[in-house]
Computed example of a mutant assay.
Amino acid sequence: MGYRYKIIVAPFLKVSGMALFPFILVNNKSLLTDAILINHERIHLKQQAELLVIPFYVLYLINYLINIAKYRNHDKAYLNIVFEREAYAKDADPGYLKCRKMYSWFRYF
């Protein structure tokens, strides 16, 4: 991936995992070995890095707000965020980040 990341167990987290550059947060110690979840969050770290972090969060929020207006449903809005679409589509592929092209999330619009 080009850089190291640290995984932090955060029991207060309301979701299983979250990428908060340069960290991956998980809400339970047992998730430290969940390869798909960790890969999903690593994909988000790559997205964040290529957008220089802050623009990633801005675009993520804008995309979510557009989706919530469109779908009127949190789960659908979340799952249709372009960054989530890429991460969910590729999280089961452990080699994805080695061959991933920059801005690959863009094709999920």
Rank of each mutant, 00 (worst) to 15 (best):
M1H: 12
Y3A: 09
Y3N: 09
R4G: 12
R4K: 13
R4A: 13
Y5E: 05
Y5V: 01
Y5K: 05
Y5P: 00
K6S: 09
K6D: 11
I7F: 01
I7D: 02
I8A: 05
I8K: 13
V9E: 03
V9Q: 03
V9D: 02
A10I: 03
A10Y: 01
A10Q: 08
P11T: 02
P11N: 10
L13W: 00
L13N: 02
V15Q: 10
V15R: 09
V15A: 10
S16I: 08
G17L: 03
M18I: 10
A19I: 00
A19V: 01
A19G: 07
L20E: 06
P22R: 07
I24L: 04
I24M: 04
L25T: 06
V26Y: 00
V26W: 00
V26I: 08
N27V: 01
N27A: 06
N28V: 02
K29F: 09
K29T: 13
L31G: 01
L31N: 01
L31F: 06
L32S: 06
L32G: 09
T33Y: 12
T33P: 00
D34I: 11
D34E: 09
D34G: 05
I36W: 14
I36A: 14
L37K: 06
N39K: 08
H40W: 15
H40Q: 06
H40R: 08
R42K: 14
H44P: 06
K46L: 08
K46W: 00
Q48L: 05
Q48M: 11
E50K: 07
E50A: 11
L52C: 11
L52T: 01
V53G: 00
I54P: 14
F56G: 00
F56Y: 04
Y57C: 03
V58C: 02
V58Q: 02
L59D: 04
Y60I: 02
Y60V: 02
Y60K: 04
Y60A: 11
L61V: 10
L61H: 10
L61Y: 15
I62A: 06
N63M: 07
N63C: 09
Y64W: 12
I66G: 14
N67H: 10
I68V: 15
I68T: 10
A69V: 09
A69R: 15
K70I: 07
K70W: 15
K70T: 08
Y71F: 14
N73T: 06
N73S: 10
H74Y: 13
D75K: 15
K76D: 08
K76V: 13
A77T: 10
L79C: 13
V82I: 15
F83D: 01
E84I: 03
E84L: 05
E84A: 05
R85Y: 04
R85N: 07
R85A: 05
R85Q: 13
E86I: 01
E86T: 02
Y88P: 02
A89D: 09
A89T: 12
A89P: 11
K90T: 07
K90D: 02
D91Q: 10
D91E: 12
D93T: 08
P94I: 08
P94N: 09
P94C: 08
G95C: 12
Y96Q: 09
Y96F: 13
Y96R: 11
L97I: 11
K98N: 13
C99S: 15
K101N: 10
K101V: 05
K101M: 11
M102K: 14
M102V: 06
Y103T: 14
S104L: 11
W105I: 03
F106K: 12
F106W: 12
R107E: 12
R107Y: 13
F109A: 15
F109I: 09
